[in-house]
Design a protein around this nucleic acid. Sequence first.
DNA 1: CTGAAAGCGCTTACAG
DNA 2: CTGAAAGCGCTTACAG
Lengths: 336, 336
Amino acid sequence: MDNPTIKEIARRAGVSKSTVSRIISGNGYSSPEARNKVLGLIEELQYKPNAVARAMVSQRTHNIGVLLYRRDLPIASHPFYGKIVDAVLLEAARLNYSIFVTTDHDMSYRSADFMIEKRVDGLILISRLQQNVIDHITNFGIPFVMVNGSTDVDGVIHIVNQDEEGGRMVAEHLTQTGHKRIFVIAGPQSHRSHHLRLRGFLTSIRQSGIQESNASIQSAGTSTFGEGYEIMRREWNQFREGGYTALFATNDMLAMGAMKFLLEQSVRIPEQVSVVGFDDVDFAAMFSPSLTTIKVDAGDMGTKSVHLLDQLIRQEQNVEHPSQLVPRLIVRQSTK
Amino acid sequence: MDNPTIKEIARRAGVSKSTVSRIISGNGYSSPEARNKVLGLIEELQYKPNAVARAMVSQRTHNIGVLLYRRDLPIASHPFYGKIVDAVLLEAARLNYSIFVTTDHDMSYRSADFMIEKRVDGLILISRLQQNVIDHITNFGIPFVMVNGSTDVDGVIHIVNQDEEGGRMVAEHLTQTGHKRIFVIAGPQSHRSHHLRLRGFLTSIRQSGIQESNASIQSAGTSTFGEGYEIMRREWNQFREGGYTALFATNDMLAMGAMKFLLEQSVRIPEQVSVVGFDDVDFAAMFSPSLTTIKVDAGDMGTKSVHLLDQLIRQEQNVEHPSQLVPRLIVRQSTK
DNA sequence: CTGAAAGCGCTTACAG
DNA sequence: CTGAAAGCGCTTACAG
């Protein structure tokens, strides 16, 4: 019933625990006879080494904690962050780490402390989180990388997208296709990415010689589908009477929410209104009409974060901060 | 830099490790003076108990492994399974467990063994998996529950939805709204849920006196959006010429894929064709038109699985197998 | 090539 | 109320 231990194997093989340990790890010498007997026993008794005991002596758990700060569900299944998590899971398995996924809506120390107590080898922090949590973690000297968040602290390994550049690409796409009056739904400006996307967009619009007054900017309190829908519903009269021919939302979910309301008003997309989002969540390609957007490579973010964290854990020298990920315009059915 | 240990606390407080341990755990007696000094030191030195060492002696890690068998991405971010994972994460935190999320496309022993070596207290197995993996896990006497999979093994705690009943509800909804010729996209029949949904649907259709020949059944090789789209594209002529007024797919993603193709052919939904899916993934309510579907309470599945597993882990007597979850018809814009 | 010993950081009887 | 000792399951020098 209970898993056999190294001690049981040793007893049955008539050797010492040390010998069994050496044979299992492949470190140090062992005679062929001892090896055969031990290996046979391991097979027969289905011996599984106890990773807890190993962690105890090696001071390494080979576990990584993923901390995802979100106020509400979905979390792991979030259309954007979920893709990061998936990539983290895959890359971690490849590098022989196990992943603790933890969520927290308090942005408190609680879950960070929990991971510290579990003695994870390192931490991946996803989404925005407060400075004091970063300080707290730094304080314990545990390696971590930050993904798609924002921080001013020097030396923090920090994987982000070139959001400002992406905003510029949206503006160019829309102005080049002849749009002059553009309606904008801007996600929470306290978020680094929403802020930069809007800024890049506006800068570029201005450079194209379009008056600021030709862009109506609506502030979204959250960055959800429901919020996009609501804003469009609320601003429907202004939108219709303003002669807007294009809509840009700083993420896909806001864009699709707004789009759904427009479709319900029988607005034809893209014939009457062009719509552009940001992120390229899976859903963007599925929506009808499919959504033109800026692709942020969430998978790459996840993969890189594990890779970098692994280097930090192994204390490699000169781990290079990755340059920011390059966004890409994906033109689909929602613009023309 | 390094985390202080109980030994360090003891040394500074001038007491023994035993005393410190007692004070921390609250088990056993301790003098107020000792308590004050120790607690002060813990605060001052930011002592965090080492969960690895604790697990070593208590033989309990307070970790749970979630095994998700999926051939392809998305995994954690899967529209349906992701919701289960989210609920698991939440409920686990509430019961003070940490969650290892693991994925595997091999359906091999590999990841199961990995979790066994990590000495998780229990396992949550999501989606279909092979009998031999179940046997393997059972063999180690580690508690587990299965979610939305299928097994014939007695005594396996097994959380599923009343899929056959759901299939019936779809048939009733469509026949009651006057549909006679129904096009069906049936997901992989090796999957318990797809199989039962189709069976329930067909049984009910027959009872309504509709000839089997009035239902065209297309087998889908996978259960994805892309597959739904492709099938509809391939069968477009048959669909159009067959005079079908309704479409039922055994899950939402297939339904929405098919729906997207129909919309691209300017088919008006629901005026010309009614569409029904199954699952109620978040996306179903967002699609335009929003999708009528059968709600499978993924959140409830996740919550229940943790709750049950916790009872197994704590070796509670007469843990009751939950009855199957009750599905619910949600009528949206895609049917009339 | 092998075994005895010490130790990783805790907890838990046990004796005082 | 407190401390010494043993032990959880391993690994790692060290001596032989």
